Structures are given as structure tokens and as C-alpha cells.
Simulated scan of single mutants.
Amino acid sequence: MKNTLLITVLSITFFSCSKDPVNDSSKLDALTTGTWKLTGSMTDYEKDGVFEENTYAMLSGCIKDNIYTFQSDGSSIIDEGPTKCYSNAPQTVTSSWSFSDNQTRIQFGGVNYQIEALTTTTFSLKGRVPYNVIYTIDVKSTYTKL
């Protein structure tokens, strides 16, 4: 009886403890050291978990050559790269980003993405983005460190 009570108390104590937030500086360092370039994009129009279309292949060169820089202060810079889509557009645009949910998600470009991978060379995201005025689609994007 004592063993059962002890096991019960220990189980309740173990499972009721809240987990401390993760402060993984390696993810921050991986993201904020160097620059990134989009190297893959898949789309799931039906939002059923099957990313059926390689939308990266359809992107124009002026989007594929953009360079993304994430600063440790939460700001980000998107550089149009060598080829601008619109000649009168600015060369760079500054935005913001932030981690959430113990660094498993990132808010970037107005979208809250699930981080699928973040290493020193690869950054993969999955999220639901606006498709047009009334629709959304699920996208999976991969960035590679330059």
C-alpha cells in the first residue's frame, strides 16, 4: 500500500510539473548567423496534409534570388537580390520576426509558421498563408544558408 501511494504521489508530482520554456541559443544562432535563400516551396491547396504541388518551380527568378537576413534583435531584412520583380520597388524591406511555443514556431511576414527544421544550413517552415482575398493554403518552404 505504501509503495502504491508513493508511486501515485511521485507520478502526480512528475506529471504536474510545468516544463521550463526552452531558451535554445543554438536555434537563435543558426537563424541569425548569415543569410538565407528560398530553395523550395510546396503547396497543399486542400489543406489535407498532402503537399501536392511544387510551387518553387513556378516562382520567377526575381523571387528565387531574394536574400533573407534575420537579426538577433527580432528584425529581418529581405533583399530583392540581383533581380528585382518591380524596378520601382525598394531593394530591401525591413520586417520583424519572433519565436514562440518554445522556439517551435516563428512569426514572420505576418504568418505564424511551424518550424520543421532549423540547423546551421537549413530552415524549413510550414504554415497557412493567404492565397487571395478569401482563401488560405498550406505551404512548406525551405531556405538554405548562403
Rank of each mutant, 00 (worst) to 15 (best):
M1K: 12
L6R: 13
I7K: 11
V9C: 04
V9E: 03
L10F: 13
L10S: 07
S11D: 05
S11K: 04
I12K: 00
I12Y: 00
I12G: 00
T13P: 00
F14P: 01
F14C: 07
F15Q: 08
F15I: 11
S16G: 07
S16C: 10
S18V: 11
K19N: 07
D20I: 12
V22C: 10
D24H: 12
S25I: 10
S26C: 02
S26I: 06
D29C: 05
D29E: 13
L31K: 02
T32C: 08
T33L: 09
G34P: 06
T35G: 03
T35I: 04
W36A: 08
W36H: 10
W36K: 09
W36V: 09
L38M: 11
T39M: 05
T39D: 05
G40W: 00
M42T: 09
T43R: 06
T43C: 02
Y45M: 08
K47W: 06
D48F: 00
D48G: 02
D48S: 00
G49N: 04
G49A: 04
G49H: 02
V50P: 00
F51H: 06
E52W: 01
E53L: 12
N54Y: 03
N54F: 04
T55I: 13
A57D: 14
G61Q: 11
I63H: 13
K64G: 09
D65H: 02
N66Q: 14
I67G: 01
Y68G: 02
Y68A: 07
F70Q: 11
F70C: 11
D73A: 01
D73M: 03
D73W: 05
G74P: 02
G74Q: 02
G74K: 02
S76F: 01
S76P: 00
I77A: 01
I77F: 00
I78V: 14
I78N: 12
D79Y: 07
E80D: 15
E80Q: 15
E80S: 15
P82M: 04
T83S: 11
K84Q: 14
K84H: 10
C85L: 10
S87N: 10
N88T: 15
A89F: 15
P90L: 06
P90H: 04
Q91C: 08
Q91N: 09
V93I: 15
S95N: 09
F99C: 01
F99W: 01
D101Q: 15
D101Y: 14
N102H: 13
Q103Y: 09
T104D: 15
T104F: 12
R105C: 09
R105Q: 15
I106V: 10
Q107T: 08
F108V: 00
Y113P: 00
Y113L: 02
Q114G: 09
A117P: 05
L118S: 02
T119A: 03
S124I: 15
S124Y: 10
L125W: 03
L125G: 02
K126S: 13
G127Y: 05
R128K: 13
P130M: 10
Y131D: 10
V133I: 13
V133T: 15
Y135V: 06
Y135S: 14
T136P: 01
D138L: 10
S141G: 08
T142L: 08
Y143D: 06
K145L: 09
L146R: 03
L146G: 03
L146E: 07
